[in-house]
Simulated assay, not measured.
Amino acid sequence: MTDGTPFADGRVGSRFAARNRTDSRWSAVVVAFVLVTAFGLAGGLLGGLAGATTVLVWYVVGTPYAIAVGHVVLVAVFHGGIDPIAFAVVEAGFLVMMLEPAIRSEAPGRVGAVTLGASVALGGLAWLVVRSQPLWLAAAVTIGGLTLASYGLYRYGLVMFGLVEDSEAPHNEPHNDGDDV
């Protein structure tokens, strides 16, 4: 049940071991309600069950997996195609789930703004591509954008936690790898 919340000592904590337990509990309940309701409004009882499945995955393994599983079950519920309004309702539920960590952060406005900006940028990019190109190309562009964003966040985390070497270190010192006998 980890969501990648880093602590000062380098441990990664769960959603309910966060800094403020009360905020974490009520925000998790709100996210669960919003997701099940959004899926239910879009797909009826079967959609509600898909939303509950998404919430369960979110609770157990975290947000990225819930987004992936949620979209897979969305395809299963709407195997014949989905109305754009129903799709927007479900995506709004996913957005609420992605914004939940902002409540627990020390800068909720900044975290929320970055999350919204990234969501709008990736969604807008996919929308622009799908309007003029085949659907598979829109999916590939979206996956590429997510890949670049994920790598950027990974590198940012390494720098923030001091897990990378300083690039200003001198490179002209002799290196002894133990082969000098």
Rank of each mutant, 00 (worst) to 15 (best):
G4A: 06
F7H: 14
F7C: 07
G10H: 05
G10D: 08
V12H: 15
S14V: 04
R15D: 15
R19G: 12
R19N: 13
R19L: 10
T22S: 12
S27L: 14
S27R: 14
A28N: 11
A32M: 07
A38S: 09
A38V: 00
F39Q: 08
A42E: 08
L45E: 07
G48M: 12
L49R: 13
A50K: 10
A52E: 12
T54P: 11
V55N: 04
L56V: 04
V57P: 02
V60H: 09
V61Q: 13
T63N: 06
P64L: 01
V69H: 07
V75P: 14
A76E: 11
G80P: 08
G81C: 13
P84V: 15
I85C: 11
I85H: 15
F87Q: 05
F87C: 02
A88S: 10
V89E: 14
L95R: 07
L95S: 05
M98A: 05
P101W: 01
I103H: 01
E106I: 05
G109Y: 07
G109A: 03
G109D: 00
R110G: 01
V111E: 06
V111Y: 01
A113I: 00
S119L: 03
V120R: 00
G124K: 00
A126P: 06
L128W: 06
L128R: 04
V129Y: 09
V130L: 02
V130Q: 07
R131N: 15
R131S: 15
L135F: 08
L135N: 12
L135Q: 12
A139E: 13
I143S: 01
A149M: 05
S150E: 11
Y151H: 13
Y151A: 14
G152N: 10
Y156F: 11
L158W: 03
L158H: 08
V159K: 06
V159N: 03
M160W: 05
L163F: 14
L163C: 09
V164N: 02
E165T: 15
E165D: 11
E165G: 12
E165M: 11
E168Q: 13
E168H: 09
H171M: 11
H171G: 09
H171Y: 09
E173Q: 06
E173G: 09
H175K: 06
H175V: 15
H175A: 05
N176F: 14
D177L: 12
D177V: 02
D179I: 06
V181N: 15
